[in-house]
Design a protein around this nucleic acid. Structure first.
Lengths: 192, 192
DNA sequence: ATGTGCATGTAACTGGTTACATGATTCG
DNA sequence: CGAATCATGTAACCAGTTACATGCACAT
């Protein structure tokens, strides 16, 4: 449901970078992705597209088809691509939510391998910090505090562990494979 | 930061059930919990307390101390306890977020062992559904779609696996131990 | 006196959802 | 003809943050 208080305009810009689409298409894609990022409502999706348009990051083209209602296909512009690049190169916020991170993963094709690795590394550091903070806190509270707090921190530690090992594994995979993204990237680019 | 679009009045009501506190205290507790649930701002915390008060779920008592500013200590009422119980017994929403679930874990002391197990079971079912949906989706998309989408679903699957195994393990632990919560619960109750 | 930590509160703003309005096209 | 799906849009509302205002108490 909720897109988790994320400024997700950049995310849909990234989706448009991979594939020119209509607002309705974006909704469908996000719905197929299911729980991963949540599905924004049209009430936030369409205004976001209008804003992107006003900022010159995308262009519209009305496509009429005889069998179905006409649709507005949004295509990313040069400026949009630049904005996206800028976003990719700057460090991820210090308390990035899980969903926001997944959004970045989904847009991995738009990033260079270095950028992707940088982001994975930053995420790893954040999660590690969270992990150690939790451990310290639960160490302090073990005697005094409630069963529920122990449960919750145990649970969070388990998830943090899983996330860390996935990130490490992925970083290793990426450094071994020569350039898995390159082929994809060119494939996507030459559709303009 | 963000409390993740949750109606968290019930959560702070639950915190008050474990321990009578002031708004400032709640903020501190939540801050110590760190990333777990996010820290609500005073701008949402105080109004929430006022609402609980208006609904008769808590009572206030101004406590003046000579060395520090006076504080408003909120204590849960009979009605509040009942409301909390009601909340605990009804099934968790179908798309409960991680943070919302952690909130419930933190309040585990207010639940009976059965209620807790029920909630864990519901969560397990949800995550399992998510897991299979993701697997099916990524099966379809493996050939056609982007590197990023594969990355994201791989990541999500890893996290879902971790969550599932933690839940299973916890359920087992709970069913083996006789009644770990009872001692805690009485300890908390006899402070009125 | 002035600054810092404790403590409470509120008004303005923001970002999103809900619910509604509109319209084309296809199916029964 | 009415219902369903595709498709776009907007206005009202709501929850939460930001930023501000207030005041006490203690230390410098």
């Amino acid at each position: 449901m909720s897109i988790n208080s994320v400024k997700f305009r950049q995310f849909i810009l990234g989706l448009l970078a991979q594939q020119a689409m209509s607002g309705y298409d974006i909704k469908r894609v996000l719905k197929e992705l299911g729980w991963l990022v949540g599905t924004p409502s049209f009430g936030s999706l369409y205004p976001a597209l209008h804003t992107l348009l006003d900022n010159g990051l995308v262009t519209v083209k009305v496509v009429s088809r005889q069998d179905k209602p006409s649709r507005k296909i949004y295509t990313i512009t040069q400026a949009g691509q630049q904005a996206l690049q800028e976003w990719a190169s700057q460090p991820i916020g210090s308390n990035l939510s899980l969903k926001s991170f997944i959004m970045r993963l989904i847009l991995a094709d738009s990033f260079t391998k270095e950028e992707l690795c940088t982001q994975l590394g930053q995420r790893r550091d954040q999660v590690m910090a969270h992990h150690t903070a939790l451990e310290k806190a639960s160490g302090l509270l073990d005697e005094t505090s409630s069963f529920g707090q122990r449960l919750a921190s145990d649970y969070s530690l388990a998830l943090a562990d899983a996330e860390l090992s996935w990130i490490e594994g992925t970083l290793n995979r990426l450094s071994q494979e020569p350039s898995p993204t390159e082929a994809e990237q060119t494939k996507i680019m030459d559709r303009t």
